[in-house]
Amino acid sequence: NQASVVANQLIPINTALTLVMMRSEVVTPVGIPADDIPRLVSMQVNRAVPLGTTLMPDMVKGYP
């Protein structure tokens, strides 16, 4: 099973992602692959992302 990117904390709308905000976890449904975490750094979320939420491609501005 492939690990996905999961919010490690509440991420407010328009926040630029940092490594501490994300963790990898095997979840269903599958979200953004954990391998993409380095690419996500400094990209902004377009909505508030609660703790434990799987990051989906449509939540991150400019992804992929």
Score class of each variant (00 low, 15 high):
N1D: 15
N1S: 14
N1Y: 15
N1T: 15
Q2E: 15
Q2T: 14
Q2I: 11
Q2W: 14
A3K: 09
A3V: 06
S4H: 02
S4G: 05
V5G: 00
V6Y: 02
V6S: 03
A7Q: 01
A7E: 00
A7L: 03
N8V: 10
N8P: 02
Q9F: 13
L10I: 11
L10H: 12
L10G: 09
L10V: 09
I11P: 02
P12N: 08
I13M: 11
I13T: 10
I13N: 14
I13P: 15
I13Q: 09
N14V: 03
T15S: 09
T15P: 01
T15Y: 10
A16G: 11
A16K: 08
L17W: 02
L17I: 09
L17P: 02
L17C: 03
L17F: 02
L17K: 00
T18C: 04
L19W: 14
L19R: 10
L19A: 06
L19N: 04
V20I: 13
M21W: 02
M21K: 03
M21L: 06
M22L: 13
M22D: 01
M22S: 00
R23L: 04
R23M: 04
R23T: 05
R23S: 05
R23D: 03
R23Y: 04
S24T: 13
S24M: 11
E25L: 08
E25M: 10
V26T: 12
V26Q: 10
V26K: 06
V26F: 15
V27H: 03
V27E: 02
T28N: 13
T28Y: 09
T28I: 07
T28G: 07
T28D: 15
P29V: 09
P29A: 04
P29H: 05
P29C: 05
P29Y: 04
P29Q: 04
V30T: 11
V30P: 14
G31W: 02
G31L: 02
G31R: 02
G31D: 01
G31T: 01
I32A: 02
I32F: 03
I32V: 10
I32H: 01
P33S: 13
P33T: 12
A34S: 10
A34P: 05
A34E: 08
D35G: 12
D35V: 13
D35L: 10
D35I: 10
D36H: 15
D36N: 11
I37K: 06
I37H: 02
I37C: 04
I37V: 05
P38E: 08
P38V: 11
P38R: 08
R39Q: 09
R39I: 07
R39H: 10
L40H: 01
V41I: 12
V41R: 06
V41D: 03
V41H: 05
S42N: 07
S42C: 13
S42F: 11
S42P: 00
S42K: 09
S42M: 15
S42D: 11
M43Q: 07
M43H: 12
Q44H: 13
Q44M: 14
Q44R: 13
Q44C: 07
Q44V: 13
V45P: 02
V45D: 00
V45R: 01
N46D: 12
N46A: 13
N46V: 13
N46K: 11
R47D: 05
A48M: 14
A48Q: 14
A48S: 10
A48L: 11
A48D: 11
V49P: 01
V49Y: 02
V49W: 02
V49Q: 02
P50L: 15
P50Q: 12
P50E: 15
P50D: 09
P50S: 11
P50R: 09
L51I: 14
L51W: 14
L51T: 13
G52Q: 03
G52F: 06
G52H: 11
G52C: 09
G52A: 06
T53Y: 14
T53N: 08
T54N: 01
T54D: 02
T54H: 03
T54Y: 02
M56W: 05
P57R: 09
P57Y: 13
P57L: 05
P57A: 11
D58N: 12
D58G: 12
D58M: 12
M59G: 03
M59D: 12
M59F: 14
V60C: 02
V60R: 01
V60D: 01
K61I: 11
G62M: 08
G62H: 15
G62W: 09
G62S: 11
G62Q: 06
Y63G: 04
Y63W: 14
Y63K: 04
Y63S: 05
Y63L: 06
P64W: 05
P64Y: 06
P64V: 15
P64M: 14
P64R: 12
